[in-house]
């Protein structure tokens, strides 16, 4: 369970998020939609504690993670797949996953479970992360986050720049995680990709909440999306 309660965030003097509130239930995919610069990535960074909150609270499974130092947030069970993957490029696949496992002291059974979702990574085991293809890097970034057995998973444009087969693979893993009861917060640019997986969609604009709707409503009436995004 992830809850954002009226968070305000600024980069220096430029306020980016204004009273943003969201909640993602276990076993639910909430998709954050908005134009470029609306504050989607900022929201993710704020949840991870990488940006200080001016006010408001972030609560994960009853723990106010916004009161914790940033390095204690993932141990509560928040897995982060950042935009642009941000792998530890000079480290091997194995070492990247080891860093993920360390967070909550996951054993070999956790690793086996993750590798079952991404068998390709086992073949690349001792290869450096920066030598992987784009799709493999995205798999590794996702696997690294899954290694900490998250109850909340944040994915920031996980399908950006990938070929269709990879997009499908990532999409399937996201739905598997939802079915296992993980609360998934997804940022995605491509509306069709959103509508095929999301349970609910939250629109944000200029750092403020607009409406949050069930994905069903959007699938039924595409005009809503066009109204908010101007596409």
């Amino acid at each position: 369970m992830l809850e954002l309660d009226g968070i305000n965030v600024a980069y220096g003097k430029a306020q980016v998020l204004r009273d943003v509130s969201l909640s993602v239930a276990p076993g639910e995919i909430l998709c954050l939609l908005g134009r470029n610069g609306a504050g989607k990535t900022t929201t993710m960074k704020a949840i991870m504690g990488l940006l200080p909150l001016m006010s408001g609270r972030v609560v994960v499974n009853g723990t106010a993670v916004s009161d914790l130092p940033a390095h204690k947030v993932p141990a509560v069970g928040v897995g982060y797949v950042p935009q642009g993957r941000r792998l530890f490029g000079e480290l091997t696949v194995a070492q990247n996953l080891e860093i993920g496992l360390r967070v909550r002291r996951g054993g070999p059974e956790v690793l086996d479970g993750v590798l079952a979702l991404f068998p390709r990574l086992a073949e690349r085991w001792s290869q450096r992360a920066q030598t992987l293809s784009g799709g493999e890097q995205q798999m590794l970034a996702t696997a690294r986050a899954l290694c900490l057995q998250p109850s909340v998973l944040l994915l920031d444009e996980p399908t950006e720049g990938l070929q269709p087969s990879m997009i499908e693979a990532i999409r399937q893993v996201i739905t598997v995680m939802r079915d296992r009861g993980v609360a998934v917060l997804l940022v995605e640019q491509r509306v069709d990709a959103v509508l095929s997986v999301a349970d609910r969609v939250a629109f944000i604009e200029n750092g403020r909440n607009l409406e949050t709707l069930p994905a069903e409503a959007l699938r039924a009436d595409h005009a809503i999306v066009e109204r908010h995004l101007g596409v």
Binding site: K45, M48, G49, L50, A70, H71, K72, V73, P74, A75, Y80, P82, R86, L87, F88, G89, E90, L91, Q95, E98, I99, G100, R102, V103, R144, L148
Partner: peptide, 23 residues
């Protein structure tokens, strides 16, 4: 292990924090 954490911190400080490394 500690060397691994040091290298991860060197490569990407924010991601090190996001994966629980006490930077």
């Amino acid at each position: 292990r500690i060397g691994l954490l040091m290298r991860a911190t060197q490569l990407d400080r924010d991601m090190a924090l996001a994966f629980g490394i006490p930077v």
